[in-house]
Simulated assay, not measured.
Amino acid sequence: MDFIEYIKLISSDYTLRTITLGTAVLGGVTGMLGSFAVLRKQSLLGDAISHAALPGIAIAFLITGSKDTNVLLIGALISGLIGTFWIRGITSKTHLKSDTALGLILSVFFGFGMLLLTFIQKMPNANQAGLDKYLFGQAATLVESDVWLMTIVTGLCLFVLLLFWKEFKILLFDKDYALTLGFNTKFIDILITSFIVLAIVLGLQTVGVVLMSAMLLAPAAAARQWTNSLGLMVFIAAIFGASAGVFGTAISATQNNLSTGPVIVLVASVFVFFSFIFSPSRGLLFKQIRLIKNRNALELQKTLAFMYHIVEDHDDISHPHAIKILNNFQGFSRKGLRELEDKNYVKVAGDMWSLTSTGVAAATNLYNQNQKDD
């Protein structure tokens, strides 16, 4: 299937339309909530929660014997919330830092989940096959009810964000100030963390336990490069996440033997890579351009400062001796000399160059300005 055929099939093919809408909604909500995890320096939170959800899926199957998606996701949600509160308990009751607690819960819960999955696979029950899809996701299993559930959660998330926007913002940047204002910071923190857990659990079916953290963090990390505004960052992250879902699904659908979840994560990673390089304010490319400009400006100032001292010691700037001293100066490049010539600070005759009256004035002004700054 080529890309044109894919576009035509979206409106007519139920499965393709459902998967595209589901991944777009999932990318949007994880992008929004991932912004708070990134800004709170809890990048491992998504990884820990997604891995902590795995034993919940296995236990839900062992209790009910059913592979109904809603039942398994409820188990994943309970397990994820337990893991989250254990992380909070470890950091508040012990001297361990949050990254240690996150790594501990991640490894313990994931190990326990893999143990349960191995146990289930060896059970004499033909219904146990397919639970391993939650490790890497299987977007093709999405149905319309799953999309509606994601949409409802996204709408609820938007409502809560708008309702508690001021509280979230203050807690994010100055927790102590939020306490002095009388805000219940514990409740606000639990609220945003619970929504992050819910969004991660919803994405397990599509992206899987192993890759879900990238779906949470990649859009937010990319959006952070483009703005310093929290509101704009949340919006851009949602756009990046939804776009990664749509484009990842399109690439997976138009190519053979490509899993949708990993492709979505790779597309999100491309957005991160692009943002890291081409962002006007933080991008590596523009940083390098600014560095070169600053270096050239410094070289120009250094040359002008040297010119001033030549002028100070020689009344006649056109004297051969003065010109010789200027040309022996090695603190400039040919490109810098051309820039000085363009500004009419120097004039070049063959291999020799000399200072103009405009250059003398500019050098004097620069020297006087440096004297004032000192």
Rank of each mutant, 00 (worst) to 15 (best):
E299I: 15
A322N: 06
S281Y: 14
A199T: 08
L54D: 07
V348W: 11
I192Q: 07
F61A: 11
S92V: 12
I7K: 13
D146E: 01
F3S: 06
T141F: 05
V210F: 02
S281I: 14
I277F: 10
D342H: 12
T118L: 10
I49M: 08
A214H: 09
I310E: 07
K97M: 08
N328R: 09
E339F: 12
L131S: 13
L191I: 08
S194G: 00
L106S: 11
V346I: 13
L44G: 03
L366T: 04
A220R: 01
F109A: 06
K122F: 13
R224S: 07
G261V: 04
T356V: 07
L21T: 07
K293A: 14
Y14T: 12
T151C: 02
L106C: 02
G241H: 05
Y6R: 03
A363Q: 10
N296E: 13
N228H: 10
A76F: 08
T18D: 00
L266C: 02
S66Q: 14
N368R: 15
L191A: 04
R282L: 07
Q288W: 15
K347M: 14
S11F: 14
K347N: 07
K335D: 12
E167D: 12
A250C: 09
H51T: 10
I192Y: 02
G65N: 10
M123Y: 09
N368F: 09
Q371S: 03
L232K: 14
L21E: 04
G182T: 03
Q371T: 06
A178R: 13
M1C: 04
R334W: 15
N256H: 13
K41S: 14
F271P: 13
F109V: 06
D2N: 15
Q288V: 12
P55C: 04
V197D: 06
K372Q: 15
L135R: 00
S243W: 07
A58E: 04
F183I: 11
F276G: 15
Q371C: 00
K335C: 06
L54V: 02
K97Y: 13
G155Y: 08
T91P: 05
L211G: 02
F61P: 06
A220P: 00
A242H: 01
I188H: 01
F183P: 06
I192F: 02
D174V: 03
L230S: 06
A139Y: 10
D146G: 00
A58V: 08
I188S: 03
T364S: 10
I4P: 00
S79I: 08
N328V: 00
H95K: 15
F3K: 07
L77P: 06
G56S: 05
G46M: 02
S318C: 08
A37R: 06
F3W: 12
L284M: 14
I323D: 07
K122S: 15
I310T: 06
P55K: 01
S357T: 15
